[in-house]
Design a protein around this nucleic acid. Sequence first.
DNA 1: CACTTTTTTGCAAGCGTGTGCAAAAGTTTC
DNA 2: GAAACTTTTGCACACGCTTGCAAAAAAGTG
Lengths: 369, 369
Amino acid sequence: MSSGLLRSFNKISDLVVAVARKRVQDIVNNHGFMPLNKSFVSADDVAKRAGVSRSAVSRTFTPGASVSEETRQRVMEAAQALGYHVNQLARGLMRSESGIVCLVVSEMDTPYRARLVRALTHELQTAGKIAMLINTDRSDGSVDAALRQTLHYRADASILLSGLPDKAITRLCLNSGQRIVLINRDDDIDGPFRINLDDGQAARVAVSAFLRAGCRRLAFANSDVGTPSLMARERGFIAAAAEFGLEVRIVRHGNTIYESGRKIAQTLFTGAVRPDAVFCVNDLMAFGLMDGARHDFGLHIPEDLCIVGFDDIEQSSWTSYNLTTFSQPVDEIVKSSVAWLQGDATAGLVRSANLHAPLIWRKTIRNKL
Amino acid sequence: MSSGLLRSFNKISDLVVAVARKRVQDIVNNHGFMPLNKSFVSADDVAKRAGVSRSAVSRTFTPGASVSEETRQRVMEAAQALGYHVNQLARGLMRSESGIVCLVVSEMDTPYRARLVRALTHELQTAGKIAMLINTDRSDGSVDAALRQTLHYRADASILLSGLPDKAITRLCLNSGQRIVLINRDDDIDGPFRINLDDGQAARVAVSAFLRAGCRRLAFANSDVGTPSLMARERGFIAAAAEFGLEVRIVRHGNTIYESGRKIAQTLFTGAVRPDAVFCVNDLMAFGLMDGARHDFGLHIPEDLCIVGFDDIEQSSWTSYNLTTFSQPVDEIVKSSVAWLQGDATAGLVRSANLHAPLIWRKTIRNKL
DNA sequence: CACTTTTTTGCAAGCGTGTGCAAAAGTTTC
DNA sequence: GAAACTTTTGCACACGCTTGCAAAAAAGTG
C-alpha cells in the first residue's frame, strides 16, 4: 500500500477515536452511566466536568494535599459519575513509589508457600500495595527473567520466599533501590530484611520431647535441596541430641515433598536397627514417612515410632495424620514483613527478625513410654 | 589497558549521572558495586552514551521497529553497560497494553487453586505477561477494593478463578476494556471467555463406576457455597442416577473443605441406612469424609464404601487416601486461557471452552462387588 | 480598612516511554 | 550521475499523572 493511503488512514482513525471519546462524554453527561469504551476516564475529564483544574483532581486523590473541602466534594462527585480511577502507572512514573511489591517464589503450590502467599497478598492489599507474583521454577533462565520483570515494573519491594533464588538477583534488586525481604532464607547479604525462625530452639524442643517419650534412636529426615533453613534445623537437631550423648541418623533424599518422605521410610526401616523417633524437616515429608512406616512396615504411630514435623500446614490436623509439628508463625512473618516495607526509609531500619516456632501437640509423639 | 581506562571512565560517568539525579542520600549506602540509587537508568542515558537519539533506543527495544543493525548493536551495548531496563510503567502509559494480568482469587491456599495460580503465573510469564494477584477473601468490601486495583493498574486482562466474585465486578472490568477469563464460573455475562468442565459427563461416569462396583445407595456430598460448577456436578449426578432409577441422598455443609467432609460423614453414617457410594464435590471433602468414615465408623474403603472426588489434587495420591477422582485439566485450562488472552482482538473471539475431566482410578472404588 | 499570614489554586515542567511525520541517508535503476 | 525508491533517524508531541512555584483568595490581626 502507498504511504499516502497509510497516512490518511491514521488520521481517520485518530479522528474516529476522538469522536468516540466525545460521544462517550456526551453519554456520560446525559445519563451518568459508565462509559462502555476502551479508553479510561482521565483526570482531565473529571476536571472539566467539575469545573476545576487538573491539579485539583490530582490533589483530591493525593492524601495530605491541600484542597478545600468544597472542591474536593465537587471533584469526588464528578469522579464518581464518570467512574474515574487514578492511573497507578502514571502515578508510579512521577512518584518514586509504584505500589507494586513482587513476591518471588518457587513451587508456590506447596501448602506452606501457598498459605504464605495468600497471607502476604492479603496484608499487602490492606496496606494499599499490590502483589505481583513471580515464579522462579525451572531453570536459572527463568529466575533471571523474574528479576528482569521486577525491575521492568519498578517494584517498590521484593519479598523472596524460601527457595533458592540466585545471589546475583538479590544484589541486582538492591542496586535498583528496592527494599527486599528474605523469608527463611539465611542470606548474609547486607541490606535486605531477613526473617528467620529459631530453628535451633525448635530442634532442642523436639529432642527433649522425644526423650520424654522414651525414644533413644533418633533420626532426621531431610531433602537434599540444602535450603539454609532446612540445614539449620538439621544442625540444630544434631547439636541438641549431642548434648544428651545421642547420635542422629540422617537421611536426605530428593525434594522436600511427600514422595521423598516415603522413600526415606524405606531407607530407615529396612535396616536392622530402626529409629524410634524421626524429626522430619517438613510436614510433607512427615506424611510420606508416616504412610511408608504404616503401610509398608506396619508400624504404629506413636507407639512404635514418634514423629515430629515442621510447618503445621493444614493437612497436619487431618485425622489420618494428626501430626505433632512446629508451627510456622505465618501471621507474624507477614505482619513484620509488610510493616518493615512500610517503615520510614530514613530511619535506621531493622535488619532481621528471629521468630519462634511453637510446637503444636497432636498425636505423633507419645507422652510417656 | 586502554579498555581498562575506558571502563573506569564509564564508571565515573555512571556516577556523575547518578549524582545528577535527585536522590543523593542513597549513595551513602553505596558499597562500591553499582550506584545504589533509587532512580533507574533511562533511555535518555542510554541514548547519550550510544550517541544516538532516544527514539533509537526505544526502537531497539520495540520488536518490529525500524532500526539498523549497527545502531541496534550500539544501543544494546550501552544498555548492557548501564544496566538499562525498559520502564514498563511508562511503556504501559503509551501503549494500550500494560502487560499486567490480574488473577482474582479467593482462598488461594486451597491445593487446587494454588496449583492453578502457579500454572497460570508460569504460563503468563512465558507469554511475556506478568501476574498480579488479588485476594477476594472476606467481606464484599475487599472484593470491591480488588476490582479497584485491577483498574488502577490498567490491567490488560483479569482471570477470575472459581469462587464468587460479585457480578458487578465482571461488568466493571469489561467496561474498562479488559479481557476477562472466567474459570469454572458458569456466568452468563457476555464478553468474557468462559472455561468450564463437563461436569455432567463426569457425573455420568461416576454413576456408572458406582453401579459397576455394585453400589446402589448413592449420596452426594456438597458444600453450601453454591458455586455454579459445584451445583452443576450435583445436578449432573442426580440426573445420571435418575436414568438408572436411583435416588441420591444429598448432604450439604459449610465450605468446600476437609472439615465439612468430616461433618457430612457424621450425618451420612449415623442413620439407619448408610450409603455405599459417595460422590464428593471436591477432593478435600472426600478426605474428610474418608477420615470420618474410617475413624468414627470403622468403615473400610472401598469394601464398605466407595468414594469418588473431584480435582485430583496432590494429596489424592497419598497412600492414606489413594482417592479415585476426576482430574482437573489444569494444563489445558491454563494454556487455553493464556492463548485466548494473546489472541487477536479484531478476530472473532471464541466465547467458551468446555473441557473434559478424566477419571483417575485409584483405590476408593472397587472394581466389582 | 490596610497589612500580614495562611490556604487554595492554576500553570507548567517534568516522569520515561511510543510513534507519526518529514528529513536524511542509503539503495536500486536506468 | 540523476531519479526513484526504501530504510533509518531525529524531532516533537502524546500518555496521565505529580508537584514546585507563584499568583489569587481567604483568614487573621491591629
